[in-house]
């Protein structure tokens, strides 16, 4: 981090904990619920958002002085959608198997309010370099929560991590399953993602009482 000034460091580090997009700013919840049943899907989504938010923030920041305020929402949405569609089409033509993996995420990225939220809150008022750092920082903060939730849901729900059977085989009754352990299928359902995020908030705010809400 020696390359970055104190202020720039803050841009990246704050969203990781004290200003986390999911647990504090309440942005990007829908996708956090939809895709965290598997660790792999969570990682893919985190990387995609990192990419789109980093570049999108720079683009919007470069355009910030010429965007008419009356139609800024349309402009922002169209910039994200165009970026995502371009990537999707290029992948379809030149890396088809990769695009098959990612195509499900396209819609989720466009509708992800974390992207619009950061455009509106940061990129419209700051220069491209700072916006880039802000984009990266927020995407990382978002990714961290996604990966934590994905880790617990896959481990407790399917007994696997990234597809590897870490707790033994539930059908052959090996490993943990031999002493009567069962997978909690409930963890795979979306409501449990809400509850896991709720518990993460609990842990985070117990560690940092400054974040506790009055009511």
């Amino acid at each position: 981090m020696g390359l970055l000034s104190k202020k720039d460091q803050k841009l990246i580090l704050d969203p990781l904990s004290d200003d986390n997009p999911i647990t504090i700013q309440v942005l990007g919840i829908c996708s956090a619920l939809a895709i965290t049943a598997q660790l792999k899907a969570s990682i893919v989504m985190a990387v995609s958002v990192l990419f789109v938010l980093g570049i999108g923030n720079v683009v919007i920041s470069l355009m910030r002085n010429i965007i008419p305020s009356k139609i800024r929402i349309i402009v922002q949405l169209i910039v994200v959608a165009t970026l995502v569609i371009i990537v999707d089409q290029v992948l379809k033509a030149y890396a088809y198997s990769l695009s098959k993996e990612l195509s499900v995420f396209v819609g989720l990225i466009i509708t992800n309010c974390i992207i619009m939220g950061r455009f509106e809150a940061f990129a419209l008022g700051n220069g491209p370099y700072k916006s880039f750092l802000d984009g990266i920082g927020n995407a990382l903060g978002y990714g961290v929560i996604l990966i934590i939730v994905g880790f617990f849901r896959e481990l407790l729900g399917s007994g696997t991590l990234l597809g590897f059977k870490v707790l033994g085989d539930p059908i052959e009754k090996t490993g943990l399953y031999s002493i009567g352990y069962e997978n909690n299928g409930f963890m795979l359902l979306s409501p449990m993602a809400l509850i896991v995020v709720g518990l993460i908030i609990w842990v985070q705010r117990s560690k940092n009482p400054a974040l506790v809400e009055e009511n």
Binding site: N65, I66, I67, P68, K70, I71, V75, I78, T82
Partner: peptide, 22 residues
Amino acid sequence: TDGNGYTIGFATIMVIVVGGIL
């Protein structure tokens, strides 16, 4: 950047650029 003419002009150019690229 708040004038109506500017807004409409900007929108038109953006539609053409984005539509063209896609």
